[in-house]
């Protein structure tokens, strides 16, 4: 029997705003399956986003949902989680939202290792505003504000998250739909900050400017550049040229922020 997504979707809220071929819908389905697999209770789950096409996701999901301001999802989510550590808190949003305007909140949430799962949809572009370059647009690529090619170097978002202290960091792509839910579920189960970067496609504002004639071309590219970490170990640097590692890139155990704070409360109250 086909998987029932409807039970997690808010009645009457579809159709969504995303363009045909946009990868954000694939990620949403993955997120729904992951939350289901983890047995999350709707009333004890909060889904928080910023602003952008990707950030419209929570509105469709039948949970506690918070559509905040551009870049601020991690900071709002931190408040919810601190106030009610018993809740499961999930952030979702785009590359521009999470890593450019929201970069400061993002790295500090990683550093604190607060128990949240952040699904970061990296479509290499500011989609919602019509395709300006973001902090993850590759150098040389075309965007509406880089008509001569992007002069900026770009972030490796997973590396950024690892460097900032996230204790679970994974990456996959919108092509690898069957991996998205598994990695998100692993992130939800992980105690601490879990970042799941999903390389995503925006055919409307990124694809058409960068010689991906169709959605299929974009998906093929995502398929081609992805190399599972396990396979990469056996590959030469030449073979890895232009590729992106996928799967669980980093996992460690480190004290979680709210648990640490709970210990402070216990100590102060015991004294």
């Amino acid at each position: 029997m086909a998987y029932d997504y409807e039970k997690s979707i808010r009645p009457g809220k579809l159709p969504h705003i995303w363009c045909p071929g946009c990868g954000h819908g694939i990620v949403m389905k993955g997120l729904i399956r992951a939350m289901d697999a983890c047995g999350l209770e709707k009333k004890n789950t909060a889904i928080v986003s910023g602003i952008g096409c990707a950030s419209r996701m929570p509105g469709y999901l039948d949970f506690n949902t918070l559509h905040t301001a551009h870049g601020r999802a991690a900071a709002f989510a931190t408040g919810i989680k601190m106030a009610k550590p018993e809740m499961t808190v999930i952030c979702c949003g785009g590359d521009g939202d999470g890593a450019a305007i929201g970069g400061n909140h993002f790295i500090h949430a990683c550093r604190r290792n607060i128990d949240m799962t952040y699904v970061l949809m990296n479509n290499y572009i500011y989609g919602m505003t019509g395709g300006q370059f973001s902090s993850s647009t590759p150098t040389g690529h075309l965007a509406s504000t880089t008509p001569y090619g992007n002069p900026d170097p770009c972030f490796d978002l997973a590396k950024l998250a690892i460097g900032a202290g996230a204790t679970f960091v994974a990456r996959t792509t919108a092509f690898h739909a069957n991996q998205i839910d598994k990695l998100i579920a692993e992130g939800i189960k992980h105690k601490g900050m879990a970042i799941i970067e999903v390389l995503d496609d925006c055919p409307t504002t990124y694809g058409r400017r960068n010689k991906f004639r169709s959605v299929v071309d974009m998906m093929k590219r995502l398929k081609e550049i992805a190399v599972p970490v396990t396979a990469a170990a056996k590959m030469t640097p030449e073979q890895l040229e232009g590729k992106t590692l996928t799967g669980v890139l980093h996992k460690e155990d480190r004290p979680e922020y709210c648990e640490n704070y709970a210990k402070i409360i216990a100590r102060v109250q015991g004294a």
């Binding site: 909060a46 928080v48 918070l66 905040t68 301001a69 601020r72 900071a75 709002f76 989510a77 931190t78 408040g79 919810i80 989680k81 601190m82 106030a83 009610k84 809740m87 400061n104 909140h105 500090h108 704070y261 402070i264 409360i265 102060v268 109250q269």
Partner: peptide
């Protein structure tokens, strides 16, 4: 912490007000 409340020093003032709005929505 003495009354079981929460204090957090955020990364900037935008983060600070974001955190309190989130916490307020959580009651």
């Amino acid at each position: 912490p003495k009354i079981g409340g929460k204090f957090i020093q955020m990364e900037d003032e935008i983060g600070a007000i974001a955190s309190i709005i989130g916490a307020s929505l959580a009651g």
